[in-house]
Design a binder for these strands. Structure first.
Lengths: 208, 208
DNA sequence: CCTGCAATCTTGACGCTGTCAACTTGAATC
DNA sequence: GATTCAAGTTGACAGCGTCAAGATTGCAGG
């Protein structure tokens, strides 16, 4: 019989990535408030102090995890936007829908990215994809308005209204505070999102 | 000199209330992620195990604290609404503003009430004021629409749009993710809120 | 008054947590 | 082949929530 499977190597090989994966599982199962570094180490099959050789402390691991989430978040929005065609309104609605669907598909990760203070959100690995996501939002509004929204109070308020709407919806649904709309959403996700965000992106015939 | 100040009584007297007060301080200073039961006990000047005689565990103390927050939240909205006069739109905007101002004035408490899983949100002490707040929202929309919004998908979406908008705004500002709008807000809170929520409560002349 | 009891608070212990220090392993470089 | 150093291990520490047992006190019934 040849070499047994490489189960008990002393050196892991790709422990850093394995820890991030394990951390995502731990976060998804326990939530941010039940998240434990020792639990992550156990999932990765490694001793409790091993993570210290790859992450200074728990916050640094959570920063890396938040960055992974931000990257996935950005990808989801840009892919949906590209698939939506040329109509500015259709593209914008698609990104809003991607925002909500990411949040509902990755609730704990979403919480980590927007509701926790443990990661360091000033780290470039996080700020880079996060800023790009913000750019997607601003550009979408710009295409609808025909100007740079950040240069006027009205424009900034328009950006903020749209962002607040999808973000608030995602947060409230995740928090489990709005069962009445969750039913509508599961029965008809597209229509529900359309009705939800209609106030901030009026249909063409309703404009003016 | 008469009795020295009653500093070292063995029995506290009103420890339960004192613990809730201390818990609010602890929460405000450390945030939900740094909140510690032993820290609360220390603030109240009692031993680390004293709280157990008034709250089964930390979650029960946090439930009581969330209930206090929900009550204060409700009071702020109803007071503002009453002070706003008779115009349905003015009343509704006032409640929205009260929502946002409560969140910004009590960020950690707001996080506890909407972003944490540690309190038991099914406890009547919490659900009672929370349901009343929801009622304020629904009644406000009803006055604007002239029907019961909960009976139609469009109505429910309208409720959800308004709630999501103010909730998302508060969450994002608290999370520190939108410095650009915070400046606008501090320079002109009323106008900023007006512009923000304008999409969901159009001015009369813009209606129809 | 005073006696006993139950409520309230303290002390001490347990297992779990994150982090640090010291040691071991093994792979790559000279 | 010896050495070195990154990547693992074990063990320790203080702080955490919670439980059990003992100390103190207010109070009700004699």
């Amino acid at each position: 019989m040849a070499t047994g499977r490489p189960k008990k190597r002393y050196h892991h090989g790709g422990l850093r990535e394995a820890l991030i994966e394990a951390a995502e599982q731990e976060l998804a199962e326990k939530g941010i408030e039940g998240f434990t570094l020792r639990g992550v180490a156990k999932r990765a099959g490694v001793s409790h102090a091993a993570p210290a050789h790859h992450f200074r402390d728990t916050g640094e691991l959570l920063t890396a995890l938040a960055a992974v989430g931000a990257q996935r978040f950005l990808s989801g929005m840009t892919e949906r936007e590209a698939a939506a065609g040329d109509d500015p309104r259709g593209r914008f609605v698609a990104t809003g829908r991607a925002y909500i669907e990411f949040a509902l598909a990755n609730p704990a990760l979403f919480e980590l990215m927007f509701g926790s203070k443990r990661p360091d959100f000033d780290e470039p690995i996080y700020t880079t994809p996060a800023s790009q996501s913000f750019r997607v939002l601003v550009d979408g509004i710009a295409a609808l308005r025909g100007d740079d929204p950040l240069t006027s109070r009205e424009g900034r308020a328009a950006v903020m209204s749209a962002w607040s709407l999808v973000h608030g919806f995602a947060s409230l649904v995740i928090a489990g505070r709005v069962r009445f709309i969750r039913e509508d959403f599961e029965a008809d996700p597209t229509g529900t999102i359309e009705r939800l965000i209609a106030p901030v992106v009026p249909r063409p015939e309703e404009k003016r």
